[in-house]
Amino acid sequence: MGSIKLSKVSKSFGDVEVIPPLDLEINDGEFVVFVGPSGCGKSTLLRLIAGLEDLTSGAIEIDGTDATNATPAKRGLAMVFQSYALYPHMSVRKNINFPLKMAGMDQAEADKRINAAAKVLNLTDYLDRRPGQLSGGQRQRVAIGRAIVREPSAFLFDEPLSNLDAALRVNMRLEICDLHKTLTTTMIYVTHDQVEAMTMADKIVVLHDGYIEQVGSPLELYERPVNKFVAGFIGSPKMNFVSGASAQKRNADSIGIRPEHLDVSAESGEWSGTVGVSEHLGSDTFLHVKLDDGSMINVRASGDLKVEYGEKIFLNPQEDRVHKFDAQGLSI
C-alpha cells in the first residue's frame, strides 16, 4: 500500500513562503512526477513528504494514517537522491544492507533480499566494490537497490538522472519505468525535465512558484493545458505564442500553437515569414521562422521538407489544435 494525501500543506523558510497551502492526492501504485522549473518548490515538496523538512502547516497522511510529525525513518518511504548519497566507506553490499540493518532485520533474510535486488539491478558482480569504484549508472543502481530492499510503501526520486550523460539517462529512465511495472509500488519522481515527466508519469504535477498549476496525465497536459505556463512548459520544442490580430480574430488575448501543429506552404497562409536556421534531424526538421512582424516561430516539419536559409514561406495553424488564452493567461 502506498497512498499519500497532502492537505493544506505549506512550507516557509523564515518569511519566505516556498510552498503556499496545497492539496494533493497520490494513489497507491501511481507513478507521479513533480515537474517545474528550478526553484518551483518541487524538491521541497518531496522532502516534506520524506520527512526531511517540517511542515509549516497542514497534514500528510500515508496509507490513511497521519504522518505529519513522523520521523523520516518511521514513514516507510525510500528515497533516491540526486547525488545518489551512497555511503562512500561501505561496500555496495553494505550500502544496500544499511536500511535492513537499521530495521534490525535477520541477516539471512537481508542477504536474500540483497542478492535478489542485485540480480534485478545487474549489481551481482559489484557487491564487494566501494561506490568510488563504480560508474555513474552503477551508483544510481546501487541507490535504487538500497531503496527497493526495504520494500517501502513508496519510492521518492529527487532528480535521480540529472548527473548522468544523455544516453545513460534514457536507459535508466526505461529501467525505472520497468521497475515500476514489476514492483507496482507508488513512485514520486521529481524532475525539471518535462521529457522525463512525459515519458514516465501516470500523473504529472506541474509546479510553479510553489503553486500546483495543473495535475493530470501526460496527454491531458499536452492536449488541454489549463494555462499558458503549463502550455509552454509541456511539449518540446516549446509552444509558440502569438498575440495581436490572429488572436483577436479567434476572440482570445493570445493564442498558442505547437510547432508540430503548423503546416508549411510555399504559396499562401495565415502568417508569412523568412526561414532562419533550420535543424535537420532526419526524421524531423525544426525551422526557426522570422515572421514579417519580426516575431520568431518554431515549426516542426517533416524530415523531407527542403527549405533554404532566407526563403520566404507561409504558415497555417491547424485550427482544432490552436490553444486560446485570456488576458490572465488562462485557457479559454
Binding site: M79, H89, F98
Partner: peptide, 26 residues
C-alpha cells in the same frame, strides 16, 4: 554532503546511529 546523512535518516537510522555508522567513518 548533507544528502548522505539524509539518506541515512531515510534508511531508518536514528541520530546516534547516523553519527556512529555514517558521519564518523566518513
Amino acid at each position: 554532503p548533507g544528502e548522505i546523512l539524509e539518506a541515512a535518516r531515510m534508511d531508518g537510522a536514528s541520530l546516534s546511529k547516523e553519527i556512529i555508522y555514517v558521519l564518523t567513518p566518513m
